[in-house]
Simulated scan of single mutants.
Amino acid sequence: MPIRAEKPSDYLATEQVVQAAFADEPFSDHSEHLLVSRLRASDAFIPALSLVYEEHDSIIGHLLLSKIEIVHAGGSCHQALALAPVSVLPSQQGKGIGTALINKSIEIAKELGYTAIVVLGHAKYYPKFGFRPASQWDIRAPFEVPDEAFMALELVPGGLDGVHGTVRYSPAFFA
């Protein structure tokens, strides 16, 4: 499979893919490529979970999972992952590349011992991977979002049992 961990020598090409993937998205601020760069420089970055899809020595897709915490009102925290962004060159979309990246990232996240992933995304796309509204676990975003668009996935059975609270993203998301 043409999916591998991103290397520093890929950074420019990856950011170009991310920028192109979101260029025509109406609900985008078109700065996702800058988010990727900021996340790489943060404590939330996990090199093994920054994946690229490569074809004919060209990067055509990218996915990033980064560390987050789910913070309970009492102060306890549960470590999880945020899926953001998933990017595929517009000319390559609809070919299963995003699906392959998501499936591979879930596999690697499980191998690394993570128990859950959250995503803010299309309510009709992510459920096919097992994502469900995070509100089912009383997990909330730190900002206003439609309930159906903020989702969570248990990577292991019961991975979110007893977990509830507000997601704390890396400051890189808000710079």
Rank of each mutant, 00 (worst) to 15 (best):
G98F: 00
H164R: 14
E6Q: 09
P2N: 00
Q79P: 15
S76C: 11
G98D: 01
P157M: 02
E148D: 13
G159P: 00
H164M: 11
D138L: 08
H78E: 09
A134P: 10
G121R: 02
I59K: 02
E144N: 14
I108Y: 03
P157K: 01
T14K: 08
P157A: 01
S31D: 14
A48T: 15
D57P: 14
A141G: 10
G113T: 08
E111F: 05
R168I: 12
F174G: 09
L12R: 14
A109L: 06
R38D: 08
V17M: 00
D161L: 06
A84N: 09
G113V: 07
P8K: 07
I117V: 13
L81R: 07
E54D: 13
R38N: 08
P90T: 07
L49I: 08
G158R: 03
P47K: 04
L35P: 00
T115V: 14
A73N: 14
I68M: 12
P2G: 03
K110M: 11
P142I: 01
A23V: 11
G165F: 00
S135N: 13
A21G: 02
G94M: 01
F131R: 04
E111R: 12
P142L: 02
E6I: 06
R140F: 13
S31M: 15
D29N: 15
L160P: 02
V118G: 07
D10F: 02
A175D: 15
E15I: 11
A116G: 11
P127T: 09
H78Q: 14
I139N: 05
R168H: 11
F45H: 12
P157S: 03
C77Y: 10
S42W: 04
A141R: 08
P2I: 00
H164L: 13
V17A: 00
E111N: 10
H78Y: 13
P26W: 02
P26C: 03
M1Q: 06
L160Y: 00
A20G: 08
V86Q: 05
P133F: 12
D57L: 10
Y11I: 15
M151P: 06
G130T: 08
E148F: 14
I139H: 04
E107T: 13
P26S: 02
G121P: 04
A116E: 09
I117A: 07
S105N: 00
F22I: 05
S66H: 02
I46C: 03
A48G: 08
L49G: 10
W137R: 05
H78F: 11
A116M: 08
R4W: 03
G159L: 01
L112R: 06
V88W: 01
G130F: 04
L101M: 02
Q79G: 13
A13Y: 01
V52N: 06
I3R: 03
R38V: 07
P26H: 04
Y169Q: 03
V118Q: 05
L64Q: 03
F22T: 06
E15R: 14
F22G: 00
S58K: 15
F173P: 04
S135D: 15
A175H: 15
H30W: 10
A5V: 08
P8V: 06
L64D: 01
L51Y: 05
K128D: 12
H72C: 14
H30E: 07
W137C: 11
V145Q: 08
K104V: 12
P157Q: 05
H72G: 14
Y53F: 08
Y114N: 03
S9L: 03
T14S: 11
